[in-house]
Write a protein that binds this DNA or RNA. Structure first.
Lengths: 222, 222
DNA sequence: TAACTAGGTCACAAGGTCAA
DNA sequence: TTGACCTTGTGACCTAGTTA
């Protein structure tokens, strides 16, 4: 992960990015409308012109296989699709395990996330689902509310989106420091719990597409 | 009212503020006279001399774009700026697209806010307007009374002003704790529902300019 | 007594902190 | 830099008190 950071931190690169007109204002706008939104903005994101960074082409970042497939993206209308895409590669084991109890509802972590985002479910109830407690046969039911960005366990409604502490903190730092990220690949990296720290650019993009916004404070959209 | 005094009891920063034209005095004056006022003061606020904080210029606090400067605000394109954080790579293009979304909600918010301040409506009747219930075709009409401070739905007449629970609580805490706020920008932050929590200084200032006063208890002035 | 508001309460989210 | 944990502000809701 450091490699990305280092690359990004190069002042030269950064300045050049800025010069290219990558203004902050842009993104901002996005946020506001979709406070806690369904993630429909994704459509817009998908339409983003292909970023043509040399880096991505030169480096062979195989470990980044999990890109958010473009075809997938197309459908982005359904944010969920974002992730659904993919993953040609075996989905995170952890996830599957987790889902074992829940097969009917979610086959993969991807779907987990996608179902959440695609659904225009904004209410807490809609976003959460019960998972049988694997440690006992009791009727005890554990409620697992996934982060709309990475699928990890959400800790609440942050910046307008049901998200985990990690994505919440990441988004906070991003907007506070006005950090400019960039993707070393094609800007379509898969963002799930297991690799959310691999690409800051795509993680931030995912945050935005999920509807995160500085203005979505408190329960404006609940 | 002590709080006002406190505001004037300048610390270094505060004094500098005053020097820059962002005088607290202006605010104070507003208060006392306008218990349950019409909100016309807003106009006055706009006329306030430009406060020139260094901070704003040095830091790129774009997320604070929402100043109450009408000219700046333009079509509210601005709010987006809120998060000004920009995702580095896929640059510029993204921006424009994003801006497309916003307008509806913000425009509405703006109109709300502006209608409130500009209108010299003093009566409840004048301040409230009906909104057709979009959920049904019935003749049911929902009455929406906007908060004179942020435009959110007002819950009643608090501290002399038709306001929402949020601004009511905010004003209450402010005068109870005699908190001293300060604006990181130019003292002209836009205060609307979506970003009312961004700048306490400007929110409080707006409360005062709307006519909120500790002395305006109950409906003595109605 | 009815209508209404000031102020209290507390779940919840924003933002800070710091070990890893 | 991340993210678990912590502190603090917010605002929906409630009750006691005020007014007509």
């Amino acid at each position: 992960m450091d490699i990305y950071n280092n690359l990004e931190q190069s002042s030269t690169l950064r300045s050049s990015l800025v010069k290219n007109g990558c203004s902050d204002i842009d993104i901002v706008a996005v946020n506001n409308n979709n406070c806690g939104g369904s993630g429909q903005q994704d459509d817009d994101l998908d339409d983003l012109p292909e970023v043509s960074f040399d880096a991505s082409s030169d480096f062979n970042l195989d470990f980044f296989d999990t890109t958010e497939d473009s075809s997938v993206q197309g459908g982005f209308s359904d944010p969920g699709s974002v992730e659904s895409v993919s993953v040609g590669s075996p989905p995170p084991v952890a996830v599957n395990k987790f889902l074992l109890h829940d097969d009917n509802e979610f086959a993969t972590a991807e779907r987990l996330s996608s179902s959440l985002s695609s659904a225009s479910a904004n209410t807490k109830a809609d976003q959460q689902f019960a998972v049988a407690d694997s440690n006992s046969n009791s009727s005890v039911v554990k409620t697992f509310v996934p982060c709309k960005v990475c699928g990890d366990k959400a800790s609440g409604y942050h910046y307008g989106v049901t998200s985990c502490e990690g994505c919440k903190g990441f988004f906070r730092r991003s907007i506070q420091k006005q950090i400019e990220y960039r993707c070393l690949r094609d800007g379509k990296c898969l963002v799930i719990r297991l690799n959310r720290n691999r690409c800051q650019y795509c993680r931030f993009k995912k945050c935005l597409s999920a509807g995160m916004s500085r203005d979505c404070k408190y329960n404006l959209n609940r």
